[in-house]
Amino acid sequence: MTMLSDWIAAVCAELGLDAQDCERAVVLKVARESASAVARPAAPITAFLLGVAVGRGVPAAEAVARVHRLADGWPRIDWRD
């Protein structure tokens, strides 16, 4: 296991989640896209909001596709907060 895999397993155990449900590659891709298309601080916030949406019943693939479309058309801004 890698450090990241160990971390994911520990967080899932702590939160009572199944580590098999963690779509690591999808989350990292969305974070990378939002960081590049919008701003670096958008990555963790976008990942969190995706998790909230999925937790509320939006299918993960749909949520990711919607965020991807949004990020594609977003003007890049240099955020300083």
Rank of each mutant, 00 (worst) to 15 (best):
A25S: 01
A43R: 11
I77H: 02
M1Q: 06
L17T: 03
A10D: 11
A53F: 07
W79T: 13
A31F: 04
V54A: 07
C22G: 01
R32S: 04
P75M: 14
L28Y: 13
C22S: 12
A63H: 09
E62T: 15
E62V: 09
I8K: 10
R56H: 14
A71S: 07
V30A: 03
L50R: 02
E62S: 15
M3H: 10
R40K: 07
A53K: 00
K29M: 15
L4G: 11
A35T: 06
V52A: 03
V30E: 02
L17I: 11
A65F: 03
C22E: 03
W74F: 12
I8L: 09
L50N: 09
A53L: 00
W79D: 01
R76Q: 06
S34P: 04
V67M: 02
D78E: 12
A60N: 10
P44I: 10
T2G: 05
R32Q: 10
R24H: 06
V27F: 03
Q20Y: 06
M1P: 03
S36K: 14
F48V: 12
V38S: 11
L15N: 06
A9W: 02
W74M: 12
T2P: 02
E14N: 09
R66G: 09
D81I: 15
D81F: 15
L50A: 06
A39P: 05
A37T: 10
A43D: 07
L15S: 03
P75V: 15
A65R: 15
R56D: 15
G73C: 01
G73F: 01
E14Q: 04
V26G: 09
A13W: 09
R56T: 13
Q20W: 01
V67I: 05
E62Y: 15
A31S: 12
A25T: 04
L70Y: 11
A65W: 12
R80H: 04
L15T: 06
V11N: 09
A13P: 00
